[in-house]
Design a binder for these strands. Structure first.
Lengths: 344, 344
DNA sequence: CTTGGCACTCGTCATACCCGAGTGCCAAAA
DNA sequence: TTTTGGCACTCGGGTATGACGAGTGCCAAG
């Protein structure tokens, strides 16, 4: 029996949808009369009032003052996002603009910088983009350069364009031929592999060298493994903080904790980290674990060069955001960044 | 003859100093009565009123409303900073804390990140730190890696630890021997040179290669020169934007243009760029060319590993800031960062 | 040149008031 | 049973009013 879960009929859902849409547009509590005027619901304000009472009973909307209109609650937005809204695709000109803007990037830093700015501009909110993380990337090339008799520079280049570099102090002089040999063997085994998998393919390597060269080989490999494991390098980029000023009129109280949260890279990383890889994730208000962001919503998604996501990006805005539009922009940008990364 | 420049006697200057100090502390217009109470000036309020009238006449202070106290003008702050204030040195425990905090840094990124956070925390304002600029650095190594028959990756490593990387699309296939030759010749000439000087040493290089290879060599060099010249790559790091919320009660109007300005790296770079290398620079309100920052002050100074400054850092705050304290913090931090860089 | 006195200005705060949007409820209509 | 029109009620926001007080400018005396 239906018992506990009360069903909301279609019209009530339509009313909720209308309330969300209007409130997002006007930022003011929306009343029954205004609703029937702006949306042709085909019923009278009184009927809508009854539906509103039911919706409020169920916790989807709420009225700030006795004699005011209704505003959606977090739960209301949640229902809206899950059931009532469809991602709004970008228009063709918009897609062209995105494409064109991102195509101009010269290197990875630039790709990320352009992406984050673009996203902030499209959504008029705060945008966050995570750098392609090392752990999800694959090896494009590993280079060894002799800088001095016992000094070797190791350069690791990933398929996402990231470059990591380390100095290696070798226990003894390194011959150029040994180095070339080592370079060839490492690349033969490692190229195309995911970073965390690489050590497994190289473990046996020292055994293939002459006894006197083995310590050197081991030292180089140790440094390489270290560079591969370095997870700290999770970097992110922010843009659009100025958009915070549009969030509301109850300013300082709202904006301060948000600004503080945005300064904590750890918080942002965790925020993005909780994003499901493939699907778009929307977290609304209290659903966000971090307190300072309790009155915001986060729309995030993974992006990557192939099917797999190598990092996340997203948007932080007020709970009263334009969800369909924001989700459309986030999805489109993620898709194009993926393409750009795949091409380069 | 003294004629045009009216002299302000010592007591008037003392009054101005007292006004600035009080206003910075209370953020409220300061009246004659409160002044004589808080500072023992040894004269009556009426006398102070006369002095205030004179100071206002000269444009150092100004009253927001007929029946309100006085607040300093930009010109007043300027006089205060130039003649009336002394940089307040950090206390010994503070210096120890700075030292200790910066000593924990593991690489260049970390040094900059720690510095900017520290500065924001010490001054409780917005801090800006510029990365050691490429143009002042020297070449540690330049690496060329063949990724595909016509694709070469160029990696530039500087003595300050920065790594720049570029993809080069060559007009034709590149042989490994040619590439090795080119790599050797470039490094032989460029290592140890300052980045802007490098092109001068490499101009003749294509002529030393066989005719068919010259286009490739030229292409690689062109990309290298581009990377060397890229002034855009002047990166900066920000912290403390949350402190903006303490700036005033007339919020959105004040904070929005500032946030916008802070997002424009170009603006910030120009701001720091105008800083004199050695001496500390203080720019107050309208003295700042960029419109969005017209109601803020900027305290900045160069820092570097030796005598020479390799980059700038500074603080952005309201014109009503604690100048002596801020200047002290900026100077101290710059000094210690310089030491850290010199050591590493 | 300094000081005390005094009238004047004006912004802030508190109070009171009205207006209107929006509600909940009820009885009648569909 | 659901929808509708009517109606009394609530309450936040805006405006007018007035008292208060901090602060000033000016003047005449010290």
């Amino acid at each position: 029996m239906a018992g506990e879960v009360r069903q909301l009929d279609d019209r009530k859902l339509a009313v909720l949808r209308a309330i969300v849409q209007d409130y997002v547009g006007t930022e003011e509590p929306v009343g029954s009369k205004a609703l029937v005027e702006r949306h042709n619901l085909g019923v009278s304000p009184a009927t809508v009032r009854n539906d509103m009472a039911a919706l409020e009973e169920e916790g989807y909307i709420h009225q700030p003052h006795t004699s005011a209109g209704r505003i959606p609650t977090d739960k209301g937005y949640r229902l809206f996002v899950d059931k009532l809204a469809e991602v709004k695709p970008m228009s063709a000109p918009e897609r062209r603009a995105i494409r064109h803007f991102l195509d101009g990037a010269v290197d990875l830093d630039d790709v990320v910088a352009r992406t984050v700015r673009l996203l902030a501009q499209l959504t008029r909110q705060v945008a966050v983009v995570q750098y392609p993380s090392l752990s999800r990337s694959t090896v494009r090339h590993i280079e060894l350069v002799a800088l001095a008799p016992t000094k070797v520079m190791l350069v690791l280049i990933t398929n996402t364009g990231r470059v990591e570099q380390r100095m290696v102090d070798c226990p003894g002089p390194v011959g150029e031929t040994v180095l070339a040999d080592l370079r060839a063997r490492i690349n033969a085994r490692a190229v195309g592999q995911r970073l965390p998998d690489v050590p497994g393919f190289l473990e046996e390597l020292p055994a293939g060298f002459e006894q006197p060269d083995r310590p050197t080989v081991s030292t180089v490999l140790a440094t390489l493994f270290e560079a591969l494991a370095e997870q700290n390098e999770e970097r992110i980029m922010l843009a659009g903080t100025a958009n915070l000023t549009r969030f509301g009129h109850d300013f300082p109280l709202t904006i301060q904790p948000v600004l503080e949260a945005l300064e904590e890279q750890v918080v942002l990383l965790r925020l993005l980290g909780e994003t499901a890889d493939a699907a778009m994730t929307v977290r609304i208000g209290r659903e966000i674990a971090y307190e300072g962001l309790n009155s915001t919503s986060v729309v995030s998604v993974g992006y990557g060069s192939g099917d797999e996501s190598v990092a996340k990006l997203g948007v932080i805005g007020p709970t009263r955001m334009d969800y369909p539009g924001t989700m459309g922009a986030v999805r489109a940008v993620a898709r194009y960044v993926g393409q750009i990364l795949a091409e380069s």
